[in-house]
Design a protein around this nucleic acid. Sequence first.
DNA 1: AAATATTAATTAAACGTTTGTTTAATTCAA
DNA 2: TTGAATTAAACAAACGTTTAATTAATATTT
Lengths: 204, 204
Amino acid sequence: MDKKEHIISIAIELFAQKGFEGTSIRELAAKADVNVAMISYYFGSKDKLFEAVVEYKASYMKGILEELAKDKNKTETEKMDAIIESYVNRLLSNPSFHRVLHQELLVQHRKDLSEHIVSIFVKNTNIIKSIIEQGIRKKVFRKVDPELMMASLIGTIDQVLLSRSMCNMLLQKGNDFDPYTDEKFRKRLITHLKLMTHAYLLNE
Amino acid sequence: MDKKEHIISIAIELFAQKGFEGTSIRELAAKADVNVAMISYYFGSKDKLFEAVVEYKASYMKGILEELAKDKNKTETEKMDAIIESYVNRLLSNPSFHRVLHQELLVQHRKDLSEHIVSIFVKNTNIIKSIIEQGIRKKVFRKVDPELMMASLIGTIDQVLLSRSMCNMLLQKGNDFDPYTDEKFRKRLITHLKLMTHAYLLNE
DNA sequence: AAATATTAATTAAACGTTTGTTTAATTCAA
DNA sequence: TTGAATTAAACAAACGTTTAATTAATATTT
């Protein structure tokens, strides 16, 4: 159904821009060029639309991570590097959607939806965690705190995604600069994360 | 004015719990045990109330950081350790308010308010940045990326604050566990951040 | 193949709530 | 008695949702 997907993509855009509560069905319908009644007709309610939005985007990263985890040709260090690259590339390419999820986690308007998002996040992070733990077992990694190492990895990227203008102020760039699409910044972020994790994880 | 402060403190609580858009004036008035008209009477509007909330809490951390920065009796490493401790202690003690700010940064409902919050954040982080840069000049620190090092530091804590239930899932604790008040977890977070920054910052 | 019946998609209008805000009256304190 | 504090009620606007009517598309029957 083409029109449903169209509504979802507009919803992603608006929710990211104005938040879930801040986006009205009428505005959404207008921007998507459909009648207001179509949202109820297709999704049932505004809440259900949000669930559809999450479902639509969910578990994309999961496939990538699972394949990476079972790759026999890569060392744990190489796997971590690959994870850093895919995460940075993925999140910097879709900053809007990632912000929607964060918003819902912060607001927790609908408990069950928050839990749903959390479980998606945790599934992905658990894959990374197991790679770190395997590295520790093989003694290529130091005995770090795997859970908090995860928090540092994802948290660094999330911090950058939190606010474009804050990111720009930190980088001392003008507010017309878009760090998320800038290739230089993307590489800079990847380099920082790799250097930091290497310094912390690797036994000398 | 005692009642104004009372309203602000209830607003912090509710905004953090349900978001700005998700909190209605009537609900707020009911919880604060004041008439709905009192919010307009004291603050002018709901938006202005939010500004008052930000103003009320703003630049508390700034004093602590500034004093720390100019302390002659501490090495750069000790300063970084002290910063980690105060940040973790401060943010874990007020998770709610910190979430309100994040929400506003994500939603950006009122552009000027977001910019205001950003400038407070950036002022604080710049102090830390200058400490890192001084450490690099004195060659006790490696030539790291100061801006992204900041993002990793704050981002790690923010990631933990993002969602209590996600934090618990990561730590494999039940959902009745409150990581933010747990002394063990607080120390664990501080230890992780210190070890990670030492590993990355310090020249061997 | 044409005509009919059936289902799906789409619409404009209205629904009842809830929203933030204001009014006008009243209470309270100085 | 003057001015601020507080109240209940009303305001218009916006909200998510539903309705009932209409159009478009699909299936069935002749």
